[in-house]
């Protein structure tokens, strides 16, 4: 799946108000008011926040069963990887709110655990690709001329390459360094290899998706910067003798923040979906890590025997995507009212 939401609806922000800071406050305040009025987007934002907090804080606040009283009554989140063959495919109960899977693992714990990975991958990857995209697009747009057309032509070429194929190749390649990276990090932090590996095994994914996902962002920022570059406040900054990098970083890029935020929000669900596809194919997140994609895959395999295994991860995954999309659309309407099509 392409992770490109509809991007042809961006306009260069207006910078004709007297001073930058004034534009800043009124723009953001206005946007906040508009966003609050957009009930669907606002609720979506809250839902996303709740899902996020539950996935990351839930297992910390409600840790596993009190010692060997395994599956004792009470409300807690057991270790997501704790296999209990005596309690396979159990129906929901007090101790297992969503029941257990084919190996007796608590489904709720696994959903939250998988959510951590899915969200982590999506957020880090989005951060990586957005940073690359903003810098690349910013430089290309600011420098202009031949450099600009060369840089953007390269983006066109990369854009035409099959995304999935590249990501898979790229992650295979980065994967070859995972082992040494794990050892190095484990030594550095003086911890178990296993606990470091949980994170390092994801690095190829971060890098691969991030390295290829920045293309759209670069295009958007480039177009924005090209428009801003010619405006008076940039001339003013230049006449004050500021350096190019300072003008770009302090004066131009902050003005592209609106579209960047909107597009970043819309990228997150795209990347989550992409990670899920990869994991579904067995090419993404690897065991013992799990992600929503892996859970859904496992659920799909046992759908006829134990439907909840498919249903719950699917619901929470789809809900997250849905809310992120609503939130992104709402942000776009709030930050870029001209493109709003109610």
């Amino acid at each position: 799946m392409s992770i490109a939401p509809n991007t042809n609806k961006t306009t260069v922000p207006q910078a004709d108000a007297p001073s930058e800071s004034e534009v800043g406050t009124s723009l953001w305040k206005d946007a906040w008011i508009r966003l609050k009025k957009n009930r669907i987007a606002f609720i979506s934002g809250i839902v996303v926040l709740v899902i996020f907090l539950t996935c990351f804080l839930g297992p910390i606040l409600l840790p596993g069963p009190p010692q060997d009283g395994a599956d004792a009554t009470g409300w807690f989140l057991p270790d997501p990887n704790k296999i209990n063959l005596d309690n396979r495919s159990a129906a929901p109960s007090i101790s297992h709110l969503l029941g257990t899977d084919h190996l007796g693992r608590d489904l709720l714990s696994r959903v939250l655990d998988g959510g951590q990975i899915s969200l982590l991958v999506a957020l880090i990857t989005t951060a990586v690709s957005s940073t690359i995209g903003v810098l690349y697009g910013g430089i290309a747009g600011y420098v202009g001329g031949r450099t600009n057309s060369l840089m953007m032509r390269s983006v066109d070429v990369l854009y035409a390459l099959p995304f999935l194929v590249l990501v898979i190749l790229f992650s295979l390649w980065v994967n070859t360094y995972t082992d040494s990276m794990t050892t190095w990090l484990a030594n550095l932090l003086d911890t178990e290899r296993q606990s470091v590996y949980r994170f390092t095994s994801l690095v190829p994914l971060f890098i691969a998706i991030g390295a290829i996902g920045w293309l759209n962002m670069a295009r958007i920022v480039q177009a924005q910067v090209q428009g801003l570059r010619k405006q008076e406040f940039v001339e003013a900054a230049r006449s004050l003798g500021l350096s190019n990098s300072r003008i770009l970083l302090r004066h131009i890029l902050p003005n592209t923040l609106g579209p960047v935020i909107v597009y970043t929000t819309l990228t997150v669900p795209g990347i989550m979906l992409f990670e899920a596809i990869l994991s579904f194919l067995g090419l993404g997140v690897q065991p013992p890590n799990s992600s929503w994609g892996i859970l859904i895959k496992e659920g799909a395999d046992r759908m006829e025997v134990n439907a909840p295994l498919l249903i719950y991860p699917s619901i929470i995954f789809s809900l997250t995507l849905l809310c992120l999309n609503f939130l992104g659309d709402g942000l776009r309407d709030a930050l870029d009212p001209k493109s709003a099509k109610d």
């Binding site: 899920a276 596809i277 994609g293 799909a300 498919l310 995954f317 789809s318 995507l321």
Partner: peptide, 14 residues
Amino acid sequence: LVGICIPTFVIGPV
């Protein structure tokens, strides 16, 4: 929106 947010690997099995 449903088409975009519910992945094919859920819809397919269903």
